[in-house]
Amino acid sequence: MLYKKIFVNHWANLMPLFLVAMVYSCEENILPLEGSIEDLTLPEANFDFSESNNDYLTYSFSNLSSSATDFIWDFGDGNTSTENEPEHTFSQEGDFEVSLTASDKLGVESVQTKSISVKEPEGPVIFIPEILEAGFEAGTLEGGAGDGNDAWAIAGANNIGLSTSVVRTGDQAARIYMGAESVAYQELTVTPNADYRITLYYTLASAPAGGHIRLAVLGNTIEDASEAEDAIIASVLGDDQTSTFDYTKLTLLFNPGASDTVAIWLDSNNIAEGRVDDIMIEHVE
């Protein structure tokens, strides 16, 4: 009994003191509680984002913040999220300022803002090169220049000839002389790893037998005709001698690999006289 009374009195005495202390700390709010230490690891907001595989409007966000417990994402399009790592689908293309506010339980905040450019990805653009003097016509180079075979020359070999007889289209065709050992060479810019088809038309005199022309693609450019053989990445022979005057179609598929420059190469085995006309290149889907 006595003990209890003393106890009660004790608290009654202490009560005013306690209240004073409380009021004091509320007003000033700077004196740390006894034994507490300063928070040295403040929240730091940071994030990354990546476009979804199948939908260019959808992004997933990775939260790289440190020392934070609560997150507010603002996607810059009026939508927000409090998830740790949300996924968000934008309604349309555009530039969005996405911000992440990271905070801890002491209410300290950190904000990181990044801009996302939402845009429908373009399909791969395959470059289709223009073949100069493709029909071996005169005056088709820049400024109306050229005889019809000027874009086809290479050092170390005779330039392919021209003819106005036995022509497929226009006024001229390339002429392959018997025994002339003439060649045609032209560099082309291409898209690496794209599949291309080269088409040309040729005809060979019906005699002597055993003649052929060769259409080839060189995987790299060369300085001298002697380097051609080693550079061939695709080739095809045209050996149709059934008619001296009727043209035959010849096609060659090639893929340039990692290279963005190739060259067309044309030669023959110098047995039969021939013509080549209307070379074209296209992309194969």
């Binding site: 990546s50 979804s52 595989n53 997933s60 990775s62 939260n63 790289l64 740790n84 790592e85």
Partner: peptide, 24 residues
């Protein structure tokens, strides 16, 4: 190939694991 977060977060959810992108 930029698929770690997509693939692993789906896998983690399926199996009751606790994946976040910082675990990468």
């Amino acid at each position: 190939l930029g698929e770690a977060q997509n693939v692993l977060s789906a896998y983690a959810t399926e199996n009751g694991y606790n994946f976040t992108s910082t675990t990468l």
